[in-house]
């Protein structure tokens, strides 16, 4: 049985027909072809699939597509203003070499942006490390991810994003 679903993804209205069991991440990847959001586990723990739903970080592997009906969804593909102008968090990840294989990166970046906003652009290392508990990375040892997020916080503030 399919269910019609409509939402806004990265500012654009999208719609489709899904099964009730279709996860938001499947809708993004398989229906919309937006493969920037990744699936790294099946127990809702690795965080590779984190997107923003109505401005909050959510594991898109643990929410049904139909639950996002009418929602505003932002994915990694929707962050940069242009190829030249990345989001300050993306830029900080690049500047600080906070990614290697790139697989956890989309979820990491989305979680990081949510973290910075929740903490009103003020973070310390311990907070960043604790708040990353829902995102696993196997390459970087987190060292540079932490550095990048700490650097991005003031950059996001001054950029007003």
């Amino acid at each position: 049985m399919t269910i019609p679903v409509a939402m806004t993804v990265n500012g654009k209205p999208v719609s489709g027909k899904v099964e009730a069991r279709t996860l938001l991440v499947q809708f993004l990847r398989e229906h919309l072809g937006m493969t920037g959001t990744h699936v790294g586990c099946d127990t809702s723990q690795c965080g590779a699939c984190v997107v923003h739903v109505d401005g909050k970080s959510v594991k898109s592997c643990t929410i049904l597509a139909v639950q996002a009906e009418g929602a505003k969804v932002t994915t990694i593909e929707g962050l940069a203003e242009s190829a030249e102008k990345l989001h300050p968090m993306q830029e900080a990840f690049r500047e600080n070499h906070a990614l290697q294989c790139g697989f956890c990166t989309p979820g990491m970046v989305m979680s990081a942006i949510d973290m910075v906003k929740r903490h009103n652009y003020q973070l310390d290392e311990a907070t960043v490390r604790r708040e990353l508990e829902g995102n696993l990375c196997r390459c970087t040892g987190y060292h540079n991810i932490v550095k990048a997020i700490l650097a991005a916080a003031p950059a996001m503030k001054s950029a007003g994003v």
């Binding site: 493969t35 920037g36 593909e77 962050l79 990345l86 690049r94 990614l99």
Partner: peptide
């Protein structure tokens, strides 16, 4: 040198 591969990984356009 900042990495050349980062652009696609950071914008969700890597191809796994």
């Amino acid at each position: 040198v900042k990495r050349k591969e980062d652009q696609r990984f950071l914008t969700g356009t890597g191809r796994y």
